[in-house]
Design a protein around this nucleic acid. Structure first.
Lengths: 197, 197, 197, 197
DNA sequence: GATGAATGAGCGTTCATTCAT
DNA sequence: CATGAATGAACGCTCATTCAT
């Protein structure tokens, strides 16, 4: 079997797994459900994943990767607003393009088991560090509200998680509208982007 | 068995359950663990709870109740800052007085099963509605930043969840310090409390 | 459940397991077979044994213990023949009283897994050491044929294993007859018991 | 594929299988292990053997054949000692040249399953019959100790199995030394070869 | 012939729940 | 009420075997 063929098969299994995890959560999804959804025999699952946990982990990892690689650290010497807007857009679009996985990442992933929680927490920690640095720089330039930058970063990440999850769960207005609203919220509160360096 | 005696036993079982859930998470906690921790026989558990899920649910409900009943809707015609500070204090103190349960409520509770998720979501929805109304009133009075009040409420709730969870997980500085920092963050961003009605 | 009651139940499970192991061998005996033979539910098995292997091990251990504790080291300063006869009788009777277990000990036990093999080999090693010492003493007294006593001990143990297993498998003549024949064989070959110290 | 080519491939598969069975035992050797060791694909195995059992069986059969065909019935009218020595040498050398297979034949083979056990028992039965006849003849000539010749044959076979297995397991002294010791043991006990017909 | 992906029956073990004492 | 032995459905994972390429 050629490598891309194998990859395609793996992806199809992963897609089936995603559907199941989304519908029933991790613990209520049986390997039998996944293979039934994928239309293969049980043993086939284990040709592509060492165990059930790995399939779940792969799904989360995929999403995390996609988000992380797309984020650009804000360069405070260039115009701020478009950069922030881009990052908000990237994160929101990544998550909302895949509302199912958002639910999984934000809702089911924590509390699975310590090792797994670590993976997810690491992801957030990375985001927070990145954002925290940008905020600190911005504060030095007077374009970000004063205060503990690390705390602010956590607060913002939390705010984004909550609003995006809500959107993913309730299928709210368009992504564009949500992004606009979030940008408005950020500029009205944390960012003073009319201030010039 | 007298009613209070029964209540005491139930509480002791619940306490044991909490310890277990905190240490191992819901799925890795066996009923055997709980009864062992409580020092009773296995059957006894089922005299007080119809099943394992109910015990977990009761723990969450307890915490949710405690928080909800203590929140005071902000009366915008009186001085804002102490009221907000009180609510922040109440929520933070409730959660952090019980870092274990915070972890459970914020980390393990979602994704358990649809019915349970509903319970937790309902709790947050209530908080957001309450906060959203207050924010809207505040905006009318010019003491809250402009923008979609409901979105703002979700964002703030999300920010609080994230920062409080982080605190519960990492055992950060004192509750008082955290509260102070959060108040600073809120007043620097969402609230314009120096504006007078 | 009282201790003896529990012991009785365990013994009944063990008896069922023995029947199954004897009929089908270790690997072809399923836990389902054992519990069916014992007339209990599957879970019950695991109340008495941590796993399938342990039940098997317990059976072998039981027999090994019974044999080992009954063996008396030959005191060469007292009359030899009755002591040897007693030991032969003890071993033969122990094994043949329980032809099933003999089959298991001599046929199925080796080759199960390294840890288990060790247990069985240790048992034989003990027997050989004991016998070897007696033979060496006997040689010093001129009542045992000359030669490498350790090798002789192994040879005799092997001979006993083979003849007793054959007897267990083919249900030969009475135990008494077999014992008599074996004594005859030993006195005609290894032992010179008419020689006096 | 030419017949010898096919035979060579089969032999290579068998060699790989032997290595695996020796290292891990029958049940812990997977067909995957064998084909990996042989460097062929899984399906190939089934072109040469109908199933896993057959490969094992073939290995045992090979050894059994080699031993059986080399044994010479003792002609009591010619000098006994060299003939016995030759047979002891042949059996010992066959087994010990291949300590691995000895372990398999003597340790793992029994207890695999009833059909297989039959094969191995048949082999021993043949040896015993052959030996028993020789012993009986020898007794008639006064050069073998008196007693039940069949029992004696079993005893001797058992003794040889045990000592040879021990040697295979513990890697004792040289084959020659062991053979010498065994001959000494046999002549000191069962055989009176100095007696002349 | 050779390959190796796919199969699916099968099994050991777990654990929430029940109920006779 | 309390107990804890018993239950049995359920599940993750294995691996000998098959068969389309």
């Amino acid at each position: 079997m050629s490598a891309p063929e194998r990859a395609r098969k793996r992806a199809s299994l992963l897609a089936a797994a995603r559907r199941c995890f989304v519908e029933r959560g991790y613990h209520d999804t049986k390997v039998d459900d996944i293979v039934a959804a994928a239309g293969v025999a049980k043993g086939t699952f284990y040709l592509y994943f060492p165990d059930k946990r790995s399939a779940f982990s792969a799904l989360v990892y995929e999403l995390v990767e996609r988000i992380e690689t797309g984020i650009v650290p804000v360069d405070v010497h260039r115009e701020i607003e478009p950069q922030v807007r881009y990052n908000v857009h990237h994160v929101a679009a990544s998550l909302l393009a895949d509302a199912d996985m958002t639910r999984i990442l934000l809702n089911h992933a924590p509390g699975l088991d310590p090792a797994f929680e670590e993976q997810v927490r690491g992801f957030y920690a990375g985001l927070k560090a990145l954002l925290g640095e940008s905020l600190a720089e911005g504060q030095a330039l007077g374009i970000v509200a004063a205060g503990d930058a690390r705390l602010m970063a956590s607060f913002i990440i939390g705010g984004l998680k909550e609003t995006l999850l809500e959107h993913a769960l309730d299928a709210g207005p368009s992504v564009e509208a949500l992004e606009g609203a979030l940008m408005g919220l950020l500029t009205a509160t944390f960012l003073r982007m009319n201030a010039k360096p």
